[in-house]
Design a protein around this nucleic acid. Structure first.
Lengths: 191, 191
DNA sequence: TGAACTAACTAACGTTTGTTAGTATTTGTA
DNA sequence: TACAAATACTAACAAACGTTAGTTAGTTCA
């Protein structure tokens, strides 16, 4: 049970890296096996199928987002503070587990029909809670009154670029990064 | 020459739609041929290879972005106006040719090694010009002084979501959409 | 010691892949 | 109407795909 799940974790971790690089369809089980250090067939002692790998990555990281959002909702702080915490969390996730986040964002469309439905439901739920946070912030006068959907997706999308761009080598700490993105989204670019 | 390039255009157009749905690797030449209405082998009377399809889409739409950015740079208007025009153009491209934009954004990594280098150069050049626009706007006091890279990528990424989200059915005109996104990026969300 | 379990291996399976060869059919032009 | 070019077809290719079968070596524990 200990060694087994360690090897499975390794498979999932290497899979996430390869999926990010070459996409789900572009990654073969033989590619993956080579990274893991065993033969392709041997992986089937640890996983049921290639699809299962994708599912575990997508729903594993998805659950983390859900849990953190719930945690933030629970806290008794202002809405701008909640939004800042959420932005910081998104940045942190990308920096600490960027490959898995990339799979969540880009490869969910290769999930089987049923799992894809489940995934979309999960994502829609997340967006609904995020939107509620923005809406309540507007109603209480902390945020400008505006189209909530547009605000939501503009913010979510702005956060996604970190995954495409961030490299530890660039010498920007994740705290600074989160702070600068927060500042732009909160206060805009116009002087 | 006339009929031929019309069929080739159809192939490129259907390919873009399929690549957006299922990715480059997930789309087979037989899938594509069915959409075009001919046999897979027959497509080779019009195109050289699957790779060529990807290249034509990526560089075709890339060139449009370059040309429009040059056009905006040439105009004698304020930097906030330039940025607004550029934002509106990005929104318009996605609405009018979303499939091709999606391929540009997501499938460029399946370009051959040499074409990928060329593509990255093109993209870097675009980003350089976009960044210069922001930087000059800051220096002249129109924009807040801030990290130019972070501003650039936050804006570019915020624009990308339109492709993931926009459906003509939602009843938001492209003008309103562009205006609302501009407003958030320019002035922020905080009241 | 020996039975049960784990996790690796090789070999092979049936499909699907992009692409080519060779041939027929349609289309435009003289 | 006839010739040529363009464009479609069928058949097949070698390679790569995910996965299964069958086997072997090593570990755990009664």
């Amino acid at each position: 049970m200990k060694t087994r799940s360690a090897k499975k974790s390794l498979i999932l971790q290497e899979a996430a890296k390869l999926f990010r690089e070459k996409g789900f369809g572009g990654t073969s089980m033989r590619d993956l096996a080579e990274k893991v250090g065993i033969e392709a067939a041997s992986m089937y002692n640890h996983i049921r199928s290639k699809d299962e790998i994708l599912e575990e990555i997508c729903f594993g990281v998805g659950r983390k987002y859900d849990e953190q959002l719930s945690e933030i909702e629970r806290q008794e702080i202002s809405y701008p503070s909640k939004l800042e915490l959420l932005i910081a969390f998104h940045v942190q996730m990308i920096i600490e587990d960027g490959a898995a986040v990339s799979v969540l964002n880009n490869d969910w469309k290769f999930l089987s029909a049923e799992k894809m439905t489940e995934f979309k439901t999960m994502r829609k739920e997340y967006e609904k809670h995020f939107a509620a946070l923005l809406k309540q912030g507007m109603e209480q006068g902390f945020f400008k009154p505006m189209n909530v959907s547009i605000a939501l997706f503009t913010i979510l999308s702005a956060l996604r670029w970190v995954e495409l761009w961030y490299k530890p080598s660039r010498g920007v700490s994740k705290e600074d990064l989160a702070k600068d993105i927060s500042a732009l989204l909160m206060n805009g670019i116009k002087a």
